[in-house]
Amino acid sequence: MTRHLTAEQTKQVRDAYFIWHRTRREIQTTLGITASQIRLAISPNTEKQRRGRKANLSAEETQQLVDFVTKSKVNRQMSYLQLSTALFNGQYGLYTIRNTLRREGFHRGVAQKEISRA
């Protein structure tokens, strides 16, 4: 059985519990679903609440940050605070900039030396 119930399965569980007054055990054996799925289906708030803190930067600001960082080597080597100051007048802290870049797939590392081929 899938982990999450479909909308139709949730409706069946709610109807069986609230309209036909079936017990949880009867619903479990009839529909072949788990007790926790039944509990979640009959709970008053079936919408999952978002976890974590809301992202500070908007989608446009995130794209602006990514474009700026990928534009040149100098921009890639700027610190998080320098990026915040250059783009957003210091409005966002270093953790906001760092977490945004990490969500976009950027990671910090030591720059490699360029090998001259002469």
Rank of each mutant, 00 (worst) to 15 (best):
D67H: 09
L40P: 04
R76Q: 14
F18E: 13
A111F: 00
Q77V: 01
S116F: 05
L87G: 08
G90P: 12
R117D: 01
M78W: 00
Y95I: 11
V66G: 15
E60A: 14
L31E: 01
Q49K: 08
Y80I: 00
N89S: 13
T62I: 11
L87F: 02
T70V: 03
F88Y: 03
K54N: 10
N89K: 06
K11Y: 06
V13D: 05
G93M: 01
T29E: 15
D67C: 08
N56V: 08
K73D: 12
Y17F: 15
R50V: 11
N45M: 07
T70F: 06
R103Q: 09
K48P: 10
A118N: 11
A59Y: 01
R108M: 10
Y17I: 03
A7P: 14
I27M: 13
R39V: 12
A118F: 07
A86R: 04
E61N: 05
A118I: 10
Q63G: 15
T46D: 12
V66C: 15
A86W: 00
A41H: 06
Q28I: 08
Q9W: 01
I19Y: 04
Q63D: 12
H21V: 11
L57I: 02
S72G: 08
T10M: 13
V74K: 05
V74I: 14
Q82N: 07
I33W: 00
T2I: 06
Q37T: 05
N99T: 02
S84A: 07
E8D: 14
L87Q: 04
